[in-house]
Design a protein around this nucleic acid. Structure first.
Lengths: 228, 228
DNA sequence: GTGCTACTGTCAGATTCTGGCAGTATCCGT
DNA sequence: ACGGATACTGCCAGAATCTGACAGTAGCAC
């Protein structure tokens, strides 16, 4: 196995262990000496991988992905850039910042002439969606990722308000509004909640009892049946 | 210089020369022997780089970009995926396909658990934009890239039709409509053309007399002055 | 302090990379 | 049909790099 392959392997191995792993354990798993492991870690860190080592504990990889060298066609890069620009204009601040960062990272490694092409790119995205949510969608995405219950006050189309506790599992981006898709404990059914009608968001540490992907699948099934 | 750096250098060098370059010339430019160059080319091709060699001519790189190994945070990948999904739902078929391809390429190199996360991703994009253009926006993008004049029939807001020859330099993606931004030869000024009002598109081989980026810059200046 | 671990320096041996050479195949213009 | 230019492959010895082992320092937890 070549060195560069091994470096990717190391990243993946680190990803599998969420708890800190000792260098010795990693070296054993990869079939290399501890000395070489230290060198590999240093190389990866040099390439920007967020690996942290603490004496007496071991190594942890902060969440993230390492993409190997990848070839994109002209139009594929245009599509990615256009898409990221669109995301960057969404009112979700955290996601928007992430999109901008991703673009910056890509631009940073491109040769000069390409970077100029990107900067002066000819694909433009319209003005930011007008609606501004009063809540932090970043918290919602976090709750989705961690499968945590979410509480909030919801004002429905008729104006009636109600307290909800829901199991959020998806976020929909439409023209004007963002929609939280969740299982509603009150209604005991799937419900959509427009983000601009949510207030008083309460994040919790309570894990909801089902897997996010199972909920998503079930919800999709209910969508397909009664073809609207 | 390490081998992996040199491989990226080779790609960039190939990009600079649009005409076929002989292996010897490339080897000289990189300061390596021709034998090593052949090995490097083989390695790159093995990694998916679209390099073509023809006996008696030399090497050409089909347009595209090679991204070096890159680290993305959780949210950055989510942003890229969401953005690409949005592009994939746009009515521009070529761009939409490119977005889907880019996503597939990224998914292909991700470890299994991450690919599942992506597939069952929790960020959804609304239904495809309703409006369907009668013209192929791919042709427009191509004209923009190559700085070619474009002819078409335009039906303005009042319903009046006119023949136009324009110098297109940007494409805007709004909620519902796509807009071609161009210098209009008839009006001798910058004009926006809604894609759904364009018909009878005529691509030409006639290069327009100004640089695309200069037009873009000038157009932006006219936008900023009279704050609407 | 003791035990565990991250990290660095050094050096010899293993591994890989590189350049040169010889040879084959393919395309092009004449 | 021919010569010239070039892509491409196999082989091998020397150069460069990588690797493992050992010795040593430093931080943290008990």
């Amino acid at each position: 196995m070549s060195r560069s392959e091994r470096l990717l392997d190391l990243i993946q191995t680190l990803r599998r262990h969420r708890r800190p792993v000792s260098g010795q354990a990693l070296a054993d798993e990869l079939g290399i000496s501890i000395r070489t492991l230290y060198r590999d870690i240093a190389t990866l860190q040099g390439q920007g991988a967020p690996i942290e080592g603490e004496a007496g504990l071991g190594y942890v990889l902060k969440p993230g992905f390492m993409l190997p060298p990848l070839m994109f066609s002209d139009e594929e890069i245009e599509a990615i850039v256009l898409g990221s620009r669109w995301v960057a204009k969404q009112p979700d601040q955290r996601l928007s910042a992430a999109a901008a960062n991703a673009l910056a990272k890509i631009a940073a490694v491109l040769p000069d002439d390409l970077r100029e092409d990107l900067d002066a790119s000819t694909l433009l995205v319209g003005p930011p969606a007008a609606a501004i949510e009063g809540i932090d969608l970043g918290l919602v995405r976090q709750a989705i990722r961690n499968e945590r219950k979410l509480g909030f006050l919801y004002r429905d189309a008729g104006g009636a308000a109600s307290e909800r506790v829901v199991w959020p599992f998806a976020l929909g981006f439409f023209d004007k509004v963002r929609v939280v898709v969740a299982w509603c404990e009150m209604r005991q059914d799937f419900r959509h909640f427009r983000a601009d009608r949510i207030s008083g968001l309460n994040t919790t540490d309570t894990r909801y009892p089902r897997r996010r992907q199972a909920l998503l699948k079930e919800w999709r099934a209910t969508l397909d049946k009664p073809r609207s």
